[in-house]
């Protein structure tokens, strides 16, 4: 009996060891597959462009150079794109956060008579929308095309983000609001002075969602502001760089570049690195907010 038990235990601990071993290998492979493509782009971005054409560049640059970055930083369209991307990320995030937070405050007031109807009005927009063409014509009609405002105004209120904030606000104790009301505070004072300071974690989450969305978007630049080179965004310029690389290899520009020891591929790698730089740098500090936000919105909501 005891023998049998011991045998069983040994067997299961062996199985256990194999599982732990295989699972560790799986996790290591997962990390490599996730990080390696980014690392390889970094290697290409620091390597001499013509040298890179020989292939075989995997872990470390063979012929170091900053020329790729210098070329990128001399491209006017990329600089304009970077400027617009930063502007839309900052302005767009602040306005979207304020707009979503205020709406969340309104629909999370238990005393508000239309709270249910107003919630429903916004939840419906998550499932039903007019589609690309009507929206395009609407923006055109409103004069939002060929304008910076198309990046800011239409996407300001998002039902999903609003509902995440609302869920958080509903979880705050009612007594806070009641005592402020007894002191004669109006809604705007309660919102800015009482509720908002307590919502910092969820505000951080939503601000980050919005900021990443703004930083990464390119389709609106292409669809609404293609005609205006001064309103382009960094991602859209990067996209044009990518499609030009896959389509041309012997244009005048690439021949000109070949002399300067940069190739379209190496320049693109440098541009890719510069574009992801803000996200990768801020990521370790901000990533905990992403997780809290998603679990608040997903599990409770």
């Amino acid at each position: 009996m005891t023998n049998h038990r011991m045998l069983h235990k040994r067997k299961s601990s062996l199985g256990n060891k194999i599982f732990v071993f295989l699972n560790t290998i799986f996790m290591v492979l997962f990390v490599i597959i996730t990080l390696y493509p980014v690392w390889n782009t970094l290697v290409l971005a620091f390597n001499d462009g013509t040298d890179a054409l020989r292939g075989g560049l995997y872990l470390w640059p063979r012929k170091w150079t900053f020329q790729n970055y210098i070329t990128v930083l001399h491209k006017k369209n990329l600089l304009v794109g970077a400027y617009i991307s930063v502007a839309r990320t900052v302005i767009g995030t602040l306005t979207a956060l304020a707009a979503n937070a205020l709406l969340a405050y309104i629909v999370s007031r238990k005393r508000f008579i239309f709270k249910r109807q107003l919630s429903l009005f916004w939840v419906i927009t998550m499932y039903v929308n007019g589609g690309m063409i009507p929206v395009f014509l609407l923006y055109k009609g409103l004069g939002l095309t060929n304008s910076f405002l198309v990046y800011i105004i239409p996407g300001m209120v998002g039902a999903f983000n609003m509902m995440v904030i609302r869920t958080y606000m509903v979880g705050l104790p009612d007594s806070l609001e009641e005592s402020a009301q007894l002191d004669g505070a109006g809604d705007l004072v309660i919102f800015t002075k009482i509720i908002s300071p307590l919502c910092k974690p969820v505000y951080a989450t939503i601000a980050l969602f919005c900021a990443v969305g703004h930083w990464n978007s390119w389709f609106d630049a292409m669809l609404y502001n293609r005609m205006n080179a001064n309103l382009t965004t960094l991602q859209y310029e990067l996209m044009k760089l990518l499609s030009s690389v896959s389509n041309q290899s012997n244009s005048v520009e690439s021949m000109k570049n070949a002399v300067a020891a940069v190739t379209p591929t190496s320049v693109r790698s440098a541009a890719t690195i510069l574009t992801m730089l803000p996200i990768v740098c801020l990521y370790p500090f901000l990533q905990r907010y992403f997780v809290t936000g998603l679990t608040i919105g997903g599990v409770k909501g």
């Binding site: 990390v31 996730t34 990080l35 493509p37 782009t41 990464n216 992801m276």
Partner: peptide, 27 residues
């Protein structure tokens, strides 16, 4: 280890499709 792997695992979510498809094209 769990925390490190998890933190790394959701990094690609924050990269734009432009970047991801560019990398995929290279690979």
């Amino acid at each position: 280890g769990k925390k490190v792997v998890q933190t790394i695992s959701y990094l690609p979510h924050f990269l734009s499709w432009i970047i991801v498809t560019g990398i995929l094209h290279d690979a």
